[in-house]
Simulated scan of single mutants.
Amino acid sequence: MIRPSLTLLNKFSYTPGPSRYGIYPLLPPSLAMTSYPPIRPVPDSIPRPEYVPSNFFTADWGEHDAVDMKEADAEQIELGGEGEKRVREVAGMARDVLKEVGKLITPGMTTNELDKVVNDLIVSKGAYPSPLGYSNYPRSCTTSINNVIAHGIPDDRPLHPEDIINIDLTLFCKGYHGDTSATFLLPEVDEQGRDLVEATKEALEVGIKACKPGRKYKDIGKEIEEFAKRHGFSVNGQFSGHGIGNVFHRPPWIFHCRNDEPGEMVPGDCFTIEPCLVQGRNSRGKLWDDGWTMVTESGARSAQFEHQVLITENGVDVLTRI
């Protein structure tokens, strides 16, 4: 695809990032979305998670029914049972969708176009895109670019050759959720950006190695933070991994920095590990007015990778490994 013109990019406030963190487009608060195009269709035949308002696809924006988001307790998957079979299958579906989407990321493509691909691939599998309608979220995935830590809303900004982009997707099928994410490199990302992405990918593996029956949940964050510091990065503590299965988000909460979260892993635990590493020492984020997009306070870049894991009798299985 042809490199997008600077005229088009300037419409979206193309500004180089701070030089100490490299050269890349900063995403400014002016990109925060306050109104949204029509919600992508999902056939009525595909079951929705219970948190999706019944009028989500028919009401005008902002007029959706409120849904009581009930606090869920921790729950183990019955190993060897139908639940384990389904959660493995659905996590594998999420993995396959992310793999296909990753092949299509090119300069000039918009994140709205990527969101449509995600939506259509998920629906083609007879599944529902879990983010769509979660607390009235208006899209089928999140797309977080450069200084966006997490929860970027797909829009019409064209991807720049110097961008890094995280795509986080979850799908719901047969009563279970499958959740995964990865950060992708556009062709002209500088060395500092590539180092960040590679370190974040490795940090996820460090967290996975801390998993087995009897290990404490807080051990995951301790190992990840120590690794990140050794490589000159900080870890954002405002987002966590979470238990997942027939509920999208539930305990245990998996923090990726040092923490005092109680409890230890037992066979049947199914949860995500999804560290966000940030360039420099300030990992804090600030929220845009859209209520979703979290960007770094420093303007530094952030990267994220995520796997869904299942604790077994002997260790851990990574359900979304490509």
Rank of each mutant, 00 (worst) to 15 (best):
N146L: 08
T111Q: 00
N166D: 00
S130T: 15
V189C: 07
E82G: 06
Y137L: 00
I165D: 01
D156W: 14
G193K: 07
C173P: 00
I145Y: 05
N166K: 05
R88S: 07
I165S: 04
G178H: 14
R139F: 03
I167A: 02
Y137D: 00
N136Q: 09
G102V: 11
E162L: 14
F184Q: 08
E191T: 06
I165W: 04
E113G: 00
S124Y: 09
A91L: 14
P187A: 11
K99H: 12
V90Y: 15
L186M: 10
G178V: 14
Y176K: 11
S124E: 06
E84A: 06
T180E: 03
H160G: 02
C141R: 03
E113W: 04
T110H: 10
L98E: 06
V101L: 05
P129L: 10
E100D: 00
N166G: 02
T110C: 09
D163R: 06
I153N: 01
V123I: 05
R95H: 13
V189L: 05
V117K: 10
V123C: 01
I167P: 01
E188F: 12
V117C: 08
K103P: 00
I145C: 04
K174G: 10
L132G: 08
L185K: 03
V189G: 03
R157Y: 05
D120F: 10
L79V: 11
G152H: 07
Y128L: 02
A150G: 00
G92M: 15
P107Q: 12
G108Q: 09
G92K: 15
I149Y: 04
P138R: 14
I145A: 01
H151V: 06
E162Y: 14
E188R: 13
A91P: 09
L169D: 05
Y137F: 09
G152N: 06
D179V: 14
K116L: 11
R86T: 15
L121A: 08
D168N: 15
P131S: 12
Y134W: 15
A127Q: 06
D155M: 13
D120C: 11
K103S: 03
S135F: 10
P187S: 13
A91Y: 15
C173A: 14
V123D: 00
A91F: 15
I153K: 02
K125T: 11
I164N: 05
L79C: 09
M109N: 05
E84D: 00
E82P: 03
G108E: 06
P107T: 13
P129A: 09
C141S: 07
D190S: 14
T142H: 04
P138V: 14
R88L: 07
K103F: 05
G133P: 03
T142A: 07
